[in-house]
């Protein structure tokens, strides 16, 4: 496994945070209407979107599209943990998508975990957003996921690896919207103080700017005439 430099360094009394190297490829699968593969360090998630398409009568909603999210683990069948993650991703996507523009239709998002090395939920969110963009679905805002871990000494580590998550006291994942940089989704593990929470939110908001910058660049690269 590649070693990673310590992510929390004291610089003039202020902590410096970092995101692992990340990347994304869109439109890599031929069958789905939109697809993406998002990589954060060694963590990698593949996403595929189908829709707007025909919906089962039992799931039809008269004034908006029905959103379905499936998360496939790498080993074994999806369990309760995946269901909880699916709920988080689905409700975040629902809030970002303008689903009222496609009433009585289905949107389905499938996420395949390719490698889990920490910050999995945030990687799922980022892959989901990139796949929705690739599918060309109308969205009110973009969203991205940022995971923060608090180590036993109280330092905040952004975008932790699996080992860092294991060693930490608390892990929180936030989805941040691109319009106001506010918290769309939050999922936490472990206990922490209010102050730590607010700090993590502030850090995540900062980190989200970097990710949105990346989104913007990848769209620019894709649609510009000069590569």
């Amino acid at each position: 496994m590649r070693s990673r430099l310590a992510t929390t360094m004291e610089v003039d009394g202020l902590s410096a945070f970092s995101l692992r190297e990340f990347g994304c490829e869109q439109n890599l699968l031929s069958r789905p209407d939109g697809s993406s593969s998002f990589v954060q360090g060694d963590t990698s998630v593949l996403a595929g979107v189908y829709g707007p398409a025909e919906v089962k009568i039992s799931k039809e909603i008269y004034d908006r599209a029905t959103m379905e999210v499936v998360i496939q683990p790498k080993v074994g069948l999806p369990g309760v943990k995946e269901r909880a993650r699916e709920q988080c991703v689905r409700e975040t996507c629902e809030a970002a998508l303008l689903s009222t523009l496609h009433p009585r239709s289905s949107l389905s998002l499938v996420l395949q975990v390719v490698h889990d090395d920490g910050s999995l939920l945030s990687c799922c969110l980022n892959a989901a957003c990139m796949a929705l963009m690739d599918a060309g679905l109308p969205m009110g805002c973009l969203f991205c996921g940022v995971t923060c871990a608090i180590d036993p000494e109280g330092h905040i580590v952004t975008d932790p690896t699996a080992q860092q998550e294991k060693d930490s006291r608390a892990v929180m994942t936030f989805a941040i919207d691109s319009a106001q940089h506010r918290v769309m989704m939050s999922s936490t593990k472990g206990s922490f103080s209010v102050n730590e929470l607010q700090q993590c939110i502030a850090v995540s908001q900062r980190a989200s700017e970097k990710i949105f910058q990346f989104y913007r660049e990848s769209v620019r690269r894709r649609y510009s005439k000069t590569v």
């Binding site: 970092s18 490829e25 690739d134 990346f214 990848s218």
Partner: peptide, 10 residues
């Protein structure tokens, strides 16, 4: 369609 970003600090 692909883009990569190096480790960034916040």
């Amino acid at each position: 369609t692909a883009l990569k970003s190096d480790e960034v600090s916040i």
